[in-house]
Amino acid sequence: MPSITDLWRQGENSAVEFKSASVRPESLAHEMVAFANTDGGSILLGVEDDGRVSGIGTELDYEQWAANIARNNVVPALDARLSIERLENQRVLLIDIPKGRDKPYQTNTNQFLVRVGSTNRVATQQELMRLFQQAGVFHFDLTPVERASIQSLDLSKIDAYFQRYDVDFEQDENRDGLLINTDILTEERLPTLAGLLVFGINPQRYLSDACISFAHFAGAQIDEELIDKQVIGGTLDRQVEGTLAVIKNNLREGSIIEGAKTRPTDYYYPDKVFRELLVNACVHRNYAIHGSRIRVFLFSDRIEVISPGRLPNTVTIEKLRCGVSYAVNPVLVKFMENLRFIDKLGRGLPMVYREAVTHDRQVIFEEVGEEFRVILGLHDQA
């Protein structure tokens, strides 16, 4: 945690805000809400906008005052960390706002705000949708795909899916009702996003970015020579299997010949590792983010799988390693689980982590902006 002096020297930015001691309660609430809805941040109360340290007086219990604002002017109430610090021989109140666990937050005047650079602004409809999705209040995979219809679905694949459960879809007199009850269609008889992504004939006709971009670079940087580049579309199960085949085709397993046998010279990840990363990216990405695809980058020393969307409110990087999971797209998870691509026990990413660590490989789970990234080392760490 940086000291208050370090924060002050940074100046105002996406994680630091200066406020005069004379700030109005509603203005301070705006800062709290914006930080909580984004990545958290620190407010230095007693520092002017130009960075001059003016301090806070002793006539008011500022800690209690700020705590009351966090509880009464923010909805839901926010648990801020407060402390009086010394800065330039002045008393300053340091208000640490954590990344919110109960997003979306709003002011008591019903404003949803987000932090952008060193300023706050009212959340757009798309940003608000993402916040509600992170909270589990809204599931985008249940929304209708407006231009699609039941003719956009592969009925033979749906029939094979139901046959697993001894349901004769072809002979069912109420096929539309069956599709509605299983979330493949909405009540208006439009394909759901989940239904189209799993059972669609050509999902990318309606969801152009619901695919995987693969790129293989000769070196360790993105500006190196491009060896291979592909876009893998189709339904999610085909995207996973197709991208897995592309990865294996581009990865070269080092080996030596000993007598009549070939022996690998380096550990080679099993298919289940790459399959898990691809399935995780497909079912947990935020499909409400338009203009962004899942991206798989293969470098000389690592592979990166980048998925649009942040982790849900209650999930942290540390929890992922321990198997804690939350379905951002529960219908997609249900379909892919029933197709035997995943289970709901949260064992996938912990398995990837163990495989890498056991063989002394780098493994990083991280959030970068509005994306979740997994970096998997391909060679022993030096």
Rank of each mutant, 00 (worst) to 15 (best):
L45W: 01
T358N: 14
K99E: 01
D166P: 13
Q221D: 15
G40E: 00
D96E: 10
L185Q: 00
V368C: 06
M129K: 07
R175E: 14
R302T: 01
R147C: 12
R101M: 12
D166Y: 15
I56R: 08
H216V: 04
L87G: 06
A70W: 05
D223F: 09
G57A: 05
E188I: 14
Y353N: 12
V47I: 14
G40I: 00
L349N: 03
L349E: 02
G259S: 03
V16Q: 00
K103C: 11
E12A: 00
E253T: 08
M129Y: 08
S213Y: 14
R285W: 11
L44C: 10
G200I: 14
C282N: 07
Q111H: 14
I342E: 04
D271L: 14
T119N: 10
V16R: 00
H139C: 10
E355Y: 11
I97S: 02
Q10G: 03
S325H: 13
R24Q: 13
S83C: 13
G234H: 12
A21N: 05
T265N: 08
L332C: 09
V374K: 02
R340P: 15
A67N: 09
P270C: 08
E59H: 06
V116Y: 00
V368T: 07
R347E: 09
G136E: 03
G346Q: 06
R81H: 13
N313D: 14
G254V: 04
L236A: 07
I184W: 01
N108I: 06
T119D: 08
E304C: 13
I69M: 09
F274T: 01
S292C: 11
S307Q: 02
L378E: 01
L345I: 15
A382L: 12
L87H: 04
C282F: 02
V368L: 06
L349F: 04
F341Q: 09
L226H: 08
Y105R: 10
K99F: 05
R361A: 11
L226R: 10
H359Q: 13
V328H: 01
K229M: 15
Q64E: 07
L193R: 10
G234P: 02
V246E: 13
P312Y: 03
A70C: 06
R91N: 11
V33H: 04
S307D: 04
L44E: 00
V324Y: 15
V145I: 07
L277C: 06
G136N: 07
E367K: 12
L185K: 05
S149Q: 04
I257M: 08
C211N: 09
F132Q: 10
V296M: 02
E31R: 04
A15V: 09
M129E: 12
F140S: 02
G254K: 10
E318Y: 10
E173W: 12
D102V: 04
G242L: 12
T107I: 01
G200L: 10
I43P: 00
N280D: 05
G234R: 13
L332I: 11
P270V: 12
D96V: 11
T235F: 12
T38A: 14
T124F: 12
V246Y: 15
K229D: 09
L153G: 09
G117T: 02
L236H: 15
